[in-house]
Every structure is written in structure tokens, then in C-alpha cells.
Design a protein around this nucleic acid. Structure first.
Lengths: 357, 357
DNA sequence: CTGTTAGCGCCTTCAC
DNA sequence: GTGAAGGCGCTAACAG
């Protein structure tokens, strides 16, 4: 389906030109469409393209023009939350005529920087960093430097679902109201009558985890309850560590409800309760965070805080791509979140201490 | 942190050379490491690189050398199954010193071809197509042509979790024993005592869906049961369509068990049973396929066919990257699968027709 | 409308 | 050891 090219590799624009009996410039112009050629020539060229199975060399093209690439960087490609956000990015990128690729740090946060560099080397137009991450001062500094470098290359860095506490840098951020969501979630438990509400927190180095904790504590205080450190456990927001931490919480304390940092760890908590012979929600109520598809399938259906994942991704992409002259160097958008009530919350069990084993 | 470059964009190798007082050739050589320069010069260059925040232009480099890119193409970036496979690809690609990017057709199968072309344009070394897909004769022909084109460009196409029924083409394929898995799953139900076993099939255009159907029918026949078309419904393997199809199956037939094409639709089936007031597994047994993480969290835990998702991805990548002179143009590897028993299967309810409402 | 001529940023001979 | 020169595939600027 393609014979007689000059070299052995991919056919080049020169091969096409030769075959169509025109100059490379003509081929280039016809292919980029930005130009009206006589239908006859046009057809000759297209025919040659077909015959040779020619596709432009995007790399060579990127040497002169924009790359048209938007990249999403996630920590873990198998995380539903991340990938839902990524799909929002994808959607918006496509709508803006860009190509979207997703890269992962494979769970190694330090790799974030090298991935960004690699992306910069490829000339991407936007780098969208999704999700929380260790935020040591050094890392933030390097991230800021990376943002500067991208900026100089005409590319944009945007944080999605993570806030920025580093030095001033050309970075946009899109986040959802995590603290407010955590407040609402805790409040939901409180108003159901619970007084011993535990929190299955995320890693304390993550600002998003701290925001959840703050919302939780604020809700407690608003109810006149002083947060009890014994009721706060932490996990790394996976199902496994959530399971373990919840188990400790449920056996070691008199908690009748637990607000989890995300749905994954909440799923672990539900499993832990079940394994301990505690019924959810009769013996213990559970609230998650994120509202990933899983929330609907765990049993009982997980009451959780809905985070607009796709919209997070779409907004981030818009911020990166739709820039005009007057825009400030750092833009910030905050999306709202709300509770989705399913079946994992009920009033606390009869006062007759069914709560402590 | 980076001033005084010639132009305004990213710094080029020329800027580095200038600043380090050497020729671009020297910089190039030092950066590619393939060369011993006097430590003193070396250091001068590295210092300039740092100062300018220089990174090579990967696109320019790809003009001459290999791109080092491996691409996974999935239909839906939010599908756990696909992303688990993708993470296997990622792992192996990284182990082989390549960079992995994932692209999606965004649920539009026809887009598969354009994504492949785009990837070819970028000069990727391998394109790994994950998951089933409509396999019309025309599409297969175009896919074969795309494989040829990739091959000519020195790149490899490999199908992962999908078999190849198209014309001869330079394509490798890695699949798991779907038919065998379906046989085992159905057999599991049969040997638990069920005789009215339904099948919640996938789209009939997908070969992987047909393989499941065949395994199901073969198991039935091995038990002396002739497949009953009324017991076969189909969905597009999402939770929603699975729910709908299962609902029909459970209200319209006397099925006491259902073998689902994948875990997502099985989750839908479980939800449908629950909504109909049928207990799983007491009133109806359910078996899934794939063994995605969700299987553990639905209630009751889903008995399912384990598909080695990561290994599928790793193998595919190895096939693509580890080629030596004598290798045949089409390689094929088949991985095994096995049943994972959880709680969604039990013997059929008392003979007293509890099965029909 | 079309061809010719320069580069884009990098790597790679080939001389020195 | 190092520099100068040519070319990778493509687009843009400038003639005709």
C-alpha cells in the first residue's frame, strides 16, 4: 500500500511533492489547509498522500509551530478521581483543538518534576497537575521554577484540585471548596445526632488533607464539641490503609460515625466495619469525599461530598488555554461542592452503648 | 533564575554554547553523555545549562533519533480495567527506558484510527491498543493499513486484550483466555446447582464479548443444557446498561444466576437485584469478569474471573519493545485467567419458585 | 498560484 | 578534544 519512496523510513513531504509533481511548499500549504489551490493540483497532492500513507512529522512541525499538546499529570493512573478529572481535561482540550496526553508519576511524587521537564522538552502548551502531593518547601520552590521555565517557553502550568502555597509563580489553580465540603459532611453527621464523630484523615503533608481536617474541626466546634485527637486517624487515602485505620478507630474508640478523607478510604472503612460485625449505618455511619463512581456501588451506598471532577479538569484546561493579553499571571477558580446523600448515614444506635464493643 | 538568552522563547543549545564559550557540538556531546570532555569544560557547560534552565528540544531531537515514546490507546480513560492495563504498560515502558503516554478515543471507536495517525506523526515507537472495539471489516482493514504504516516507520502496533481477526499485518497481540474464563465462570454457577443461568453479554460486535458468550454456551452444553436465547441479554458493559439489562432478565425470566460480561455490568446487575428486592446470592447469584478493584467493594463481594490486567500491559509492551532480528512479524501471547471466589454465588434458592416474582 | 530560499534546534560526520 | 558544516522534515518569507 505504499511503494517507491526515496528512503526506507516514513515518507516525507518531499516524497509527496515529487510524486505529485509540485514543490514541497505547495504540499505544505495544501496540507495545512490555509490556502486555496487549484482543485486539480490539490487532488494530485492528496492522491500522493494517500498512496504514500503520508502523515506530517509532528515533531518537525513543532519546530516551527505550536505543538498543540496539553498534558495532564497524575500521580496514579488507576485512581478514579484523577482519571475523572483527566477526562474533563481531555474533553476541553479537544474542544479547543488540542491533543491531550496523560502522564503519570507512578506514585513517586518526586518524579513530578522530571515529568514536567520532559513535557517541557516536548513543547507542550499546558501542564495540568492533578491532585494533592507532598508540599515540602523545596519541592514548592522547584515547582515554581518549573512554572517559570514553562512560562518562558510560552506554556502554562495549572494546579487542579490542589492549592498553591509556594512562592509567587506563573501558576493558575482550580480547586473545589474542600474545607466547605468537609464542614458540610461533618455537619451532616452531627445533625443526625452523632457526637462522637471520627475523622479518617489523609496525609498531613497534603494541603487538601489539612483542609478536610479543618472543615471537620470547624464543624465540630460550631456544634460546641471540642475535637478529640483520639478520634482522628490517618491513612494515605487508599482502600487498604483506610481499612486498617478505620479498624483501629472502630475498636479503640467509641466513635459512632466516621468522616473519611475520600471515597476509597471510606470503602475501606465500610469493609472494616462489616468485618467487625458492625452494621453500616445502624452501628456506625460513614461519609466519604469525592463522589467517585464507586460510592454508588459500595453497600450501603456511600453518602459523600460531591467534587465536580470533570469540571475541575475542564476549568483547568480553559484557564491554561484561554489566555488573553490582560490576564493576571496567577488566576484562581474555586468550584463548589455539595453533599450527596445515600445510605451510609443514620442516627447513632440506641444509647445503650452498642457503640463500644 | 534565567536571564539573558538571545531570543525570548526557550533557551536553545546555542544559548548554552555561547554562555559556556564552546561550540554547540560540544554541548550536544556533553549532554548526550556519549563522550569524555575535560571536566573543566564539562562543568562550564553544565553550569550554563542550569543557569538557563535549558532542556533539549525533544522534538528537534526526535528528528534525527528515536523518540523514546510508547503510547497506550484506550477507549475510555475512566475505565478501571483499561487503566490497570495501562499502568502495566507504563511500568514496563519505564523499565525499558521509554516514556509512556496514554491517549483516549473518548468513547468514539472511529477515533481510534486518527489517534493512531497522530501518534505516528509524533514518531512513537509503539502503539498499544487496549480493549475491545467494533471490528467491522472496513475498520480492520484500516487498522491493518495503520499497522503497516507504523511498521514502515519502525514502530510496532500491539493489541492488548483484544484478538485480531483482520488481514495479515505486522501486529502483535496479547490476550487472556477469555473463552476459558467464561467457561469456568459459567461452570462455577452450574456446579453450584443452577440450571437457569443467564448471561449478561457485551456488544456482539466485540470479539471479546463473543468469546464470553461462547464460553458460556460451551459450559452449558457440557452440562447437557441447551442455551436458552431468552436468558441472554446484552449491555454495552457499563454499569447503567448492565443495570437495565439485568432488571429485564430478572423480572422477565426465571434465571437464578447471571454471568456478566464484566464487573461493571455485574455491579449494575447486583444493584438491579437489590432494587427488585432479590437478595444476592440467596435469590440470585452473580458472577463478573475482569476482577477490577470494584469487585471487592460491591456487596456482596463479587465472584469474578480474574484477568491479569497489569501483566497484559507489561507483556504487550515487551512484545513491542523487545524485538530482535529473527522474530516473526506477528507474535501472539495468551495469558491464563482464573476464578476469584467471593460472596456473590450460592446454590439456587429452595425449589419453591422463589425465582419468579 | 507556485517555487526558491532560509531557517527551526539538534546531532553527526568530517576536518583540524 | 573541538569546531564548522550539513541535514533531519517542515513552514514561512519572498520572489516570480
Amino acid at each position: 500500500m505504499a511503494r517507491g519512496r526515496s528512503s526506507s523510513g516514513r515518507p516525507t513531504i518531499r516524497d509527496v511533492a515529487e510524486r505529485a509533481q509540485v514543490s514541497v511548499a505547495t504540499v505544505s500549504r495544501i496540507l495545512s489547509g490555509s490556502y486555496t489551490a487549484p482543485p486539480e493540483t490539490q487532488e494530485r497532492v492528496m492522491k500522493a498522500v494517500e498512496a504514500l500513507d503520508y502523515v506530517v512529522n509532528a515533531n518537525a512541525r513543532s519546530l516551527n509551530a505550536r505543538s498543540g499538546l496539553v498534558a495532564v499529570v497524575v500521580n496514579d493512573i488507576t485512581s478514579p478521581f484523577f482519571m475523572n478529572v483527566a477526562s474533563g481535561v481531555e474533553e476541553q482540550a479537544m474542544a479547543d483543538g488540542r491533543v491531550c496526553i496523560v502522564c503519570s508519576t507512578q506514585g513517586v511524587p518526586e518524579r513530578e518534576l522530571s515529568v514536567i521537564e520532559l513535557l517541557r522538552a516536548r513543547g507542550v502548551e499546558a501542564v495540568i497537575l492533578v491532585g494533592g502531593m507532598a508540599e515540602g518547601e523545596q519541592h514548592l520552590g522547584q515547582l515554581a521554577a518549573a512554572a517559570e521555565a514553562l512560562d518562558r517557553a510560552g506554556a502554562r502550568m495549572v494546579l487542579c484540585g490542589r492549592s498553591w502555597a509556594g512562592p509567587d509563580a506563573p501558576i493558575d489553580v482550580v480547586e473545589s471548596d474542600v474545607e466547605g465540603g468537609a464542614f458540610a459532611a461533618t455537619n451532616h453527621l452531627l445533625s443526625a445526632g452523632h457526637t462522637r464523630v471520627a475523622h479518617l484523615a489523609g496525609p498531613h503533608e497534603f494541603s487538601v488533607a489539612r483542609q478536610r481536617l479543618h472543615g471537620y474541626e470547624r464543624a465540630l466546634r460550631a456544634y460546641g464539641i471540642e475535637p478529640d485527637p483520639a478520634l482522628i486517624a490517618s491513612s494515605d487515602m487508599t482502600r487498604e490503609t483506610g481499612y486498617a485505620a478505620a479498624r483501629t478507630l472502630l475498636t479503640g474508640t467509641d466513635a459512632t460515625a466516621v468522616f473519611c478523607a475520600n471515597d476509597m478510604s471510606a470503602a475501606g472503612a465500610v469493609a472494616a466495619a462489616r468485618d467487625l460485625g458492625r452494621s453500616v449505618p445502624d452501628d456506625v455511619s460513614v461519609v466519604g469525599f469525592d463522589d467517585i463512581p464507586l460510592a454508588e456501588d459500595v453497600y450501603p451506598g456511600l453518602t459523600t461530598v460531591h467534587v465536580p471532577q470533570q469540571e475541575l479538569g475542564r476549568s483547568a484546561t480553559r484557564l491554561a488555554l484561554h489566555r488573553r493579553a490582560g490576564d493576571p499571571p496567577r488566576r484562581h477558580v474555586m468550584l463548589g461542592s455539595h453533599i450527596v446523600v445515600r445510605q451510609s448515614v443514620a442516627p447513632p444506635a440506641r444509647l445503650s452503648g452498642k457503640g463500644t464493643p
